[in-house]
Design a protein around this nucleic acid. Structure first.
Lengths: 342, 342
DNA sequence: TTGTACGCGTTATCAG
DNA sequence: CTGATAACGCGTACAA
């Protein structure tokens, strides 16, 4: 009883298969009685359309891929990507698309290319993988499959993207520190090869300049968004720059590492040193002390990316578009007034 | 130049389409010269097979679904699920399956059922969603689609599963505490409706009994695996049970919340109170202090689940199977000797 | 070893 | 409003 196809439905309903198809696809020009008869049979036999055949005939898969790097996920693995996936999925579900998940990791690049990109037909791809965009962009272009990027990519202005406004986010984080009286503020950011990191650093600079504070290149530390790098960087900067009373960390993960390093070194947060993070990952309110940070709308990013790619696929939008979501400052307990200001 | 089909390849290579098909599928009985000619054309025109047509003809999609709950992901969102997905994906990639990602969240159950479960044909499903297994099991059964569960489920002995050995894991965690001289050891576990939580609690009991310590039901706290519940539970237990010198937390997330609560209350870890976690999520080595915990092979769980479902699909295995992966104790700094033992 | 012909389940087109 | 009929691209008996 499992497998019943459109022809059987047609037979049982005493109509032709075209009528069944029209009913199922909500086409007009079908009589109420025919529709009724068809629906009865469909319900009775629990008929479900074969998606492979549908795709074949309709020439579209109604399926998008979401591509991450193993690295992005290691780094972001603190609840970031999961929430993002959820956003993508729910938007797709609402629009009757399904999402295929893919990771690209350097050790499987070969496999990946052959299998994923060649043998499979995706209607669109969401790129959550800054590292590989160059490699992929060309491939995607030649196959003419639409893509949207989550994040920014320097050289890829040709493909649509959605991101949080990194510049204004970090700017408001640092301004917060300034308002608390800090003058010596360090920054811990990611690789400057990433546009995102550049923007977050630019925001830091802007906030200082606006406050009339000269930026000191020596207290700009480059990490890689992991807790480990936050820890290591803080450890080594601590003794070299005792004058710094506050650090802007470009991610909550690095901030968490920094917090651990400060604790290990006997510094008090926020008593001796203030820390502000970026992202507002779910753990941020349970660090010691709870982390003041910049909240970015992760779930919304996912939904937005999905909406953009589907609009693109359906032809509703054709020009490339770069969207910037607004972040918020979330004040918790990791920042205090500068001691001298008391 | 984009779309070229098997017939064109055949024409350009001066062979029939069967030959092309056989070459592409590595079937025997094809002459070297024919194979060579075909491959040349394939390369030259960058021919790629249409997966929809393949699925239709072959009557299988070579695609598995991985189903999570929104809840499971909120809770586990500290890098757990991402690593799991990666394991699933890489195993599937190696075996030329693709993976479709799905979430079930209560607010879209309707949509979900209609779209995902009815209209789509998956060869198998990996369930990472304890809450919905009952609802789904029946559906899956009637549609005769194989499923494997990540985790344990009380009533679902009929479907294969893979999990970490929760019992021995928590047992060794608590034994570690006992070895350090602790006699009053509390437990913070998840809902006892979950088999997993039951097992972790059972391991706790076993370790105490083995050590000749009576278990005190009063110091067993029930949380929900979130940092928040760890925090709240610890806050309320702290004053009610000052005699407890060590807590076994059934997840790193709850342990992190507990750590925050202890710090807030002025207790020192491990000076006053020892904490041991479970999972070894990526943040565990950067909590304050770094968390002693039970490491479970998350990535392996994913690969294993994928392997099991594919074996099932291909008919290589037919009987249900329950696998238990071994966990390890990872000693860091959150546990110390009981003061009285000094 | 190769080629022919048909089936897979839908959708779209075009007469009625 | 309805019903043949032709794609859609590939796999595979079966025949040569």
């Amino acid at each position: 009883m499992s497998k019943i196809n459109i022809d059987q439905v047609a037979r049982y309903a005493f109509v032709s298969r075209s009528v069944v198809s029209r009913v199922l696809n909500n086409h007009p020009h079908v009589s109420d009685v025919a529709r009724e008869r068809v629906m009865n049979v469909v319900r009775k036999y629990n008929y479900q359309r074969n998606s492979a055949a549908r795709s074949l005939a309709a020439k579209n898969m109604r399926e998008i891929g979401i591509l991450s790097t193993r690295n992005a996920n290691d780094v972001m693995s603190n609840g970031f990507s999961t929430l993002l996936y959820l956003g993508v999925f729910e938007e797709c579900l609402a629009q009757r698309y399904s999402v295929r998940q893919m990771f690209i990791s350097t050790d499987m690049k070969e496999e990946f290319q052959k299998f994923i990109l060649n043998e499979h037909t995706l209607d669109g791809v969401i790129l959550f993988a800054e590292e590989v965009t160059d490699l992929l962009a060309a491939k995607l272009m030649t196959r003419e499959i639409p893509a949207v990027l989550i994040g920014h990519a320097p050289g890829l202005s040709g493909i649509s993207s959605v991101d949080v406004d990194n510049f204004s986010g970090s700017c408001s984080a640092v301004s917060h520190l300034v308002r608390l009286g800090h003058r010596n503020i360090g920054a811990m950011v990611g690789s400057q090869l990433l546009q995102e990191s550049q923007d977050r650093l630019a925001g830091y600079r802007k906030a200082l300049v606006d406050a009339g504070i000269a930026v000191n290149e020596d207290v700009i530390a480059i990490g890689d968004y992991t807790q480990r790098s936050g820890y290591d960087q803080m450890m080594s900067r601590l003794r070299r720059h005792p004058e710094v009373t506050a650090w802007f960390c470009a991610s909550d993960t690095m901030a968490m590492g920094a917090l651990a390093a400060l604790h290990k070194s006997g510094r008090r947060v926020p008593g001796d040193i203030s820390i502000v993070g970026f992202d507002d990952l779910s753990f941020a309110r349970y660090t010691i002390p709870p982390l003041t940070t910049i909240r970015q709308p992760i779930y919304q990013k996912g939904r937005c990316a999905a909406r953009m790619i589907i609009d693109r696929i359906s032809g509703k939008k054709t020009e490339v578009e770069h969207r910037n979501l607004k972040p918020d400052l979330v004040i918790r307990e990791s920042c205090g007034r500068h001691a001298g200001v008391l």
